[in-house]
């Protein structure tokens, strides 16, 4: 993962709360088996609307999304994070994020910066009155700068450290492989294993057919 210290890019005001991951990327785009190339799917249902914020030329190259509260609710699909990243977003700012979305972002190096709703409103104001304004997000200082507005943001200290170091979680956990093996040796015998497979007697499943 690339190290993240600061980022500067065009801020995009998304005045909507409760943007769920079905909005960020509709289910039809989840059939792909690749990890990249989801930029066309981002906010697909809204992109058809010429007034949608990303269709306005000033915001086209946006890389810092400033959204309403409870961003990323709903489905756990990490595709939502990939779509934002593939489109070019590096940071999402909101007053509240859904837990799974925030977790997924952290793993993928997309910064989710928690700012108060009051400060989100301040940022929206600048971005709407001066479309195309850059936002600078410093992970080092935990600050957001947009025009004359400078506001702080919150982020989990550990995630911050991991992002700044560009560290991969799996590698970090595997450093504790001995602890894992040790834990496994203490697991109770009633805990189930999926193998060998046990099921009820095999039964044939008939295929349903169209009725009309």
């Amino acid at each position: 993962m690339e190290k993240f210290t600061t980022h500067t890019g065009v801020g995009v005001p998304l005045r909507r709360s409760n943007v769920d991951t079905d909005q960020i990327i509709p289910a039809v785009y989840l059939k792909r088996v690749t990890r990249t190339g989801f930029e066309d799917a981002l906010f697909a249902a809204w992109r058809g609307d010429p007034d949608f914020i990303l269709n306005r030329p000033e915001y086209e190259h946006g890389s810092v999304l400033v959204a309403g509260a409870d961003f990323g609710t709903g489905s756990s699909r990490e595709h939502a994070v990939w779509a934002l990243k593939d489109y070019g977003f590096k940071v999402v700012i909101a007053s509240r994020f859904a837990d799974i979305f925030r977790g997924n972002s952290g793993k993928q190096g997309l910064l989710t910066a928690v700012a108060s709703q009051e400060n989100v409103e301040l940022l929206w104001k600048v971005l709407e009155t001066q479309p195309g304004t850059d936002i600078t997000v410093s992970l080092e200082e935990r600050s957001i700068r947009c025009g004359d507005v400078v506001v702080p943001f919150e982020i989990d200290e550990y995630v911050r450290w991991r992002l700044m170091e560009g560290l991969d979680d799996i590698g970090l956990s595997l450093q504790h492989a001995d602890d894992i093996t040790d834990f496994e040796s203490r697991r109770e015998s009633w805990r189930p294993t999926t193998l060998p497979a046990k099921t009820e007697p095999k039964q044939a499943v008939e295929a349903a057919r169209p009725t009309s």
Binding site: S76, R77, E78, H79, V81, I100, G103, N104, K107, Q108, D169, I170, S173
Partner: peptide, 10 residues
């Protein structure tokens, strides 16, 4: 609880 794909890999 539900997890994302990076966590699935983890």
């Amino acid at each position: 609880f539900g997890i994302g794909t990076s966590e699935v890999e983890h």
